[in-house]
């Protein structure tokens, strides 16, 4: 563990908590893409299958349980608890356009052709595109509430910090996970235009921000 990865995990946790608390306190999920949240729950489910089979550390196990619980809680709030505020007309991204290529690629490009490894690879590739329905929804509705922007900022920051972690681990312990690195770079690139807008607009207190 290094400070970059710890900061990344904390940023990820903050992002998930920001969204969950926003929905819970405003008792509404307007402007939130339920599809992206379902995809994130799927990412955690397919990635953390080794939760009971391999013990890495208490931190690792606790964080996996927390991420799984919070992501399913978010999906529950959107599709069950506050479903009448779910904006399905604007959450229309065709997730099959993400799932089909990701499934295909995880069968083609993986470290070993075993169910656990293919599911892990699937989760890595899926995570890099899981935010697309949310970004698409923001372009469609024309703007995002500032709290949603903070969510996206910390979510994008988490994988950017992981990239720094991978550089650090490569130079200190020769660790290199090609699939995770390539996918993580792609994922972070998707946030770049958002990062630019976030810094130039949201942090200047303009609250609402619209993606181009």
């Amino acid at each position: 563990m290094n400070i970059f990865r710890l900061a990344g995990d904390m940023s990820h946790l903050v992002a998930i908590l920001i969204l969950l608390l926003k929905i819970w306190r405003s008792r509404s999920c307007a402007g939130i893409s339920g599809k992206s949240q379902v995809l994130f729950a799927l990412v955690f489910t397919t990635r953390y299958l080794d939760l009971f089979t391999s013990f890495i550390s208490a931190y690792n196990t606790v964080m996996k349980v927390v991420f799984l619980a919070l992501s399913y809680a978010t999906v529950y709030l959107i599709y069950m608890r506050f479903r009448n505020s779910y904006d399905s007309e604007n959450d229309t991204f065709r997730v099959e356009f993400l799932l089909v290529p990701v499934i295909g690629l995880s069968f083609l490009e993986n470290y070993s052709f075993t169910p656990m490894e293919i599911l892990w690879t699937f989760s890595i590739f899926l995570e890099s595109v899981a935010i697309m329905p949310q970004l698409f929804m923001i372009t469609k509705t024309g703007e995002a509430e500032s709290i949603t922007n903070h969510y996206l900022f910390f979510l994008g920051l988490y994988r950017a910090l992981y990239i720094v972690n991978w550089v650090w681990r490569y130079h200190t312990e020769g660790f290199f996970d090609q699939i995770a690195v390539v996918s993580g770079v792609v994922q972070t690139i998707f946030y770049c235009d958002f990062f630019y807008l976030y810094v130039t607009r949201v942090l200047r207190g303009r609250g609402k921000m619209s993606l181009p």
Binding site: R5, D9, H12, D50, S54, I56, S57, N60, M63, K64, F67, E109, Y111, S112, W120, Y162, N165, F175, F176, D177, Q178, I179, A180
Partner: peptide, 10 residues
């Protein structure tokens, strides 16, 4: 490509 070591990352 590289076989990834134990998955110690989240």
């Amino acid at each position: 490509c590289h076989r990834s070591r134990t998955k110690d990352e989240l």
